[in-house]
């Protein structure tokens, strides 16, 4: 039982991490969802061996209870990761409506700084000054 659970957790982490390195936002979000499932299962797994449901039946002695705390923690973690993932989906939809592009671009500022020799920079400045002059007229 716990070997299967351990393998499942490992697989979820592995696939989640792999998807996280993708260039498409939708796959990154799926990767995050899988990572989230993995970590929540991990939290549940931390409670030790599965056992009788806690507090449900007064005839069961506390020694036979499953540890209830990790279950409560896992529930909280599920709610939080779910909420944040939905928000992330909304933001990525907003990004898609604005750009019609699901791909993560290269860092523009980084590329600009890398190619920033002084000549091209001064040319760019002159061009923008020219633009502003035209706008004023």
């Amino acid at each position: 039982m716990s070997l299967i659970l351990a393998i499942t957790i490992g697989a979820l982490y592995a696939i989640g991490t792999y998807a996280l390195f993708d260039r498409f936002l939708s796959r990154i979000i799926i990767g995050l969802a899988l990572l989230g499932h993995g970590s929540v299962l991990m939290l549940l797994f931390a409670g030790g061996t599965p056992n009788e449901p806690p507090f449900a039946d007064s005839s069961i002695s506390p020694e036979e209870f499953a540890d209830p705390l990790p279950q409560a923690l896992a529930l909280t973690a599920i709610v939080i990761t779910f909420g944040v993932l939905v928000f992330l989906l909304a933001v990525s939809y907003r990004s898609w409506t604005l750009t019609h592009d699901d791909e993560v671009e290269d860092d523009l500022e980084d590329a600009r700084l890398a190619s920033d020799d002084r000549v091209s920079h001064s040319v760019e400045r002159e061009l923008s000054a020219l633009d502003e002059d035209l706008e004023e007229r």
Partner: peptide, 13 residues
């Protein structure tokens, strides 16, 4: 945050 959950799980275990 997911790493944090993982860390909490390991620490609790």
């Amino acid at each position: 945050s997911l790493l944090f959950i993982t860390a909490i799980g390991l620490i609790y275990a």
